[in-house]
Write a protein that binds this DNA or RNA. Structure first.
Lengths: 179, 179
DNA sequence: CTGTAATTTCAGCAATTACTGAAATTACAG
DNA sequence: CTGTAATTTCAGTAATTGCTGAAATTACAG
């Protein structure tokens, strides 16, 4: 592993650990993302200096997030892992999984609590706040769902727009202003 | 603490711990958000059954995230804590802090790595991926920055639009399609 | 100032999470 | 099938993170 790749792998390991993602799993994924060719578990263990079993568990975790593809090479008994070829696909998967695991349960909890009648002024206020949280989260979620619908090609356009993004959103603002 | 509030507090404690946020800190903040009146550290410790010192550390953490306001009540020596009155303000602060702590360092690391010349095909590919990551993260960040500029009033409009949000974004899509 | 209430700090213990190596299981070539 | 390579599981241990109570510090009323 070259120093450049190593530095990136380390950084994403650190970042992962701030996000409830195991540091070593973060490193493994960064390595896969940066690798042009699929890797075996042994290669990953070797590159990062982790035990083979740790890599096995990490890959299992990444599979549960649907972030890696498993493939076989004809005449080779080993399993090869790779990350999607498009970064945008990775981001979309992350958003979707986060929603499934964190947002949806939260919305459903909030809805449940909003069903019951408040028994005091205190609960009335708390419910008000829960309602605000619910509506805000729901809206932001819808927003990201729309964004997720963008395909890679469309995204290229947005990326090229770059600093003009603000203008596009200003137009949106004006549209909204009329409502 | 009523069962309804308790349930919400517990839920956000759990969720927090999936996000690299200490479970007890998450509970403390949920309690503050749901409380109509400011609370003292002692009240929080009492309500949640934590030690006074744990609450002290948790509040310090929340202050470092700029998520709580500290206030004094005349003739009372204790310190009272409260969350912003607007949920949207809380969300904006969270987005801003996350950006400062996680996104900005990541972008700057990636930029640094993209400055150096690739010494092999392997590094060339890795850099390509880093470039894609960088540009995507930068774009999404700009996006959220624009969203953050919305004030509460404007947000109300968006919230009321509700299911029509998709349509608004479709209009945006069409605008982009022309580019 | 002085005394006391409020708050913070921090060393030490508890709980949780991460990682490993050995054993078990699975996969498959021959 | 059989033998072997590959992978997974899991009990035990290591490392990290979280929490507490006691002591130190700070804040302020009188």
């Amino acid at each position: 592993m070259t120093p450049m790749i190593q530095a990136c792998v380390m950084h994403f390991g650190e970042m992962g650990s701030r996000w409830g993602i195991n540091r070593t799993v973060g490193q493994m994924y960064a390595l896969l993302v940066l690798s042009q060719t699929p890797l075996t578990a042994d290669q990953i263990a070797e590159s990062l200096g982790f035990s083979r079993s740790n890599v096995s568990m990490g890959l299992k975790e990444l599979q549960s997030w649907e972030l890696v593809k498993l493939q076989h090479i004809p005449g080779d008994r080993k399993e090869y892992y790779s990350a999607p070829a498009e970064i945008w696909d990775i981001a979309k998967t992350l958003m979707e999984q986060r929603r499934k695991r964190e947002i949806d349960p939260t919305l459903s909890t909030l809805r449940g609590l909003l069903m019951t009648d408040p028994v005091s002024e205190e609960e009335k206020y708390a419910q008000q706040r829960m309602r605000e949280m619910h509506d805000l989260i729901e809206m932001l979620t819808k927003w990201t769902t729309e964004i997720q619908r963008l395909d890679s090609a469309r995204l290229q356009v947005l990326l090229k727009l770059g600093n003009n993004l603000g203008k596009v959103l200003d137009i949106k603002d004006k549209l909204l202003g009329k409502n």
